[in-house]
Design a protein around this nucleic acid. Sequence first.
DNA 1: GGTATAAGTAAACGGTGTTGACTTGTCAAG
DNA 2: CTTGACAAGTCAACACCGTTTACTTATACC
Lengths: 213, 213
Amino acid sequence: MSEEEPEMDGPEAVDECADHTRVRDREATRQRILDSARELFTRDGYAQVSSRRIAAHAGVNVALINRYFGAKRGLLAEVVAEEAVFPGVFEGDPATLPRRIAEQLVHRARGEATPLQRALEHSAGDPDLQAIYAERLESAMLVPLAGHLSGPDARTRASLAVLTILGLGTLRRVEGATALAEGDAGELTERFTSIIAACLAETVSPQSGPSGD
Amino acid sequence: MSEEEPEMDGPEAVDECADHTRVRDREATRQRILDSARELFTRDGYAQVSSRRIAAHAGVNVALINRYFGAKRGLLAEVVAEEAVFPGVFEGDPATLPRRIAEQLVHRARGEATPLQRALEHSAGDPDLQAIYAERLESAMLVPLAGHLSGPDARTRASLAVLTILGLGTLRRVEGATALAEGDAGELTERFTSIIAACLAETVSPQSGPSGD
DNA sequence: GGTATAAGTAAACGGTGTTGACTTGTCAAG
DNA sequence: CTTGACAAGTCAACACCGTTTACTTATACC
């Protein structure tokens, strides 16, 4: 019984006397829904937040969600579309790309991800969101990453790196924040760097389990 | 309009005249529910299968699910507990462990996972299942894997390998089966082997992004 | 000022997981 | 064989979900 009741008044008690010229403002209402959705999705995850709760938080009627966004799914799609995944990481010197990705991964492992990244981790499994998630993965990660790789099998190598990024999200979601948060950050960065480097390697030489099959 | 209607009679039309001695059999009913749940969860994923559908498929009343398993969640918990994740992979020569894991990963990448593994991939994001998933991850993967590692930071290194395994599941779930299925299986095995080896490496040497930060 | 139209609303629909009160079949004791 | 107790199974309801439809109401233009 603290400040966590979901039935709060709204982000701001809508003062209908502020401006007489516009009370019914489509764009403002839309934005209010979007802001509430982002806040609640970020805090609790997609499946945990009901349409009615979003509407109550935004101080609007439930039906407006479907009117403006088609369905609840459309709300998350719009929220997701706003945010960059790893801004600028995939651009730059390919030689130091693994290290840059690794640094982002360590940030995420230590809970310093953007709230929306966390929201997506919460929401990854929902099949309702698969199309949204797939599109985002493709356009924001696989394509730019593969585009900056030289050599053969760029797509496969990019997939392997993305796989690692996704795996960290899943591990954090399932195991909690403690999974890789302990230990030296520098060493973890080194580990991730070598892992990503292995993912992105142009050629792979047989290791540890030699040719004897 | 083929054979996919979910409203079929059940796994077998329950013939109440087969044996007059026992019509009300607690254990048989429980098992029937469990079998139906496994089949449907495997085929469609946890969230897509409703309690009522499971009950209808098993030919029992919905309330029995909660009577016998507490809640729908309990059904999945029991189904999951029955199945081994990677039988025997973590035991054996540590030197060839990365290759054994890699071979399992390639199997999974090519869609040859056990149906239950696929079901779990479908269902990973559901927070209702987080505790089940976490327990399974811990007892079936992290603990045995870390236990067979020598050297420092066994837990961290095991987490990194598990992270890769989980990432493949997420990638498959989001991107579909085509993600890593194309291409030469042998080469993919080599790639995964080197990645897992990087995850499990006892020590890590600075790579590619050198000391200049 | 009157009116078309968009913004916002209320109530319902079918669906979900879950629960409690109820019925009924089975088995053992009298 | 009858009777009772108890477990197995049933039914109807609860509260909630996402969504849709018909409706009211405020706004902006003529």
